[in-house]
């Protein structure tokens, strides 16, 4: 349920940006959510839909870009894809993995309008 807090964080970033750039509403918003970021994409989308009414995000098209999980395998010394923490290395089955990618949780960019 922390996705609700994260949605609040997104709105805060949008509002801060609106103050700097002087726009009225967001038409399109792109978020990057890593596979290992600890975020449920559907829950985040739902939370954003819930907080949008009455804000600059009302009616905005929201795109969630999922970046794949990546880890360095200490077992076979290669960079391997992993879908979730606790999965073994797909190459050597070792669990000695150090996640190196897919932890992102960012607002990438937005299309805005002034009215």
């Amino acid at each position: 349920m922390h996705e609700a807090s994260l949605a609040g964080g997104v709105l805060q970033l949008v509002d801060d940006c609106a103050q700097r750039e002087g726009f009225a509403r967001v038409l399109e918003l792109r978020l990057e959510v890593g596979q290992l970021a600890g975020v449920d994409v559907a829950a985040l989308r739902f939370a954003l839909d819930c907080i949008a009414p009455g804000t600059r995000l009302e009616g905005a098209r929201i795109e969630l870009v999922e970046t794949p999980g990546q880890a360095w395998c200490l077992g076979c010394s290669t960079r391997v894809p992993i879908a979730q923490r606790g999965d073994p290395c797909p190459a050597c089955s070792s669990y000695l993995l150090e996640p190196t990618g897919g932890m992102e949780l960012r607002v990438l960019d937005l299309q805005v309008s002034d009215d």
Binding site: L13, E21, F23, L27, L105, V107, L108, L110, Q111, S113
Partner: peptide
Amino acid sequence: SQVRAIKLEHDI
């Protein structure tokens, strides 16, 4: 009005 794009790339 015109529409514009803003690159933000800020951590949530």
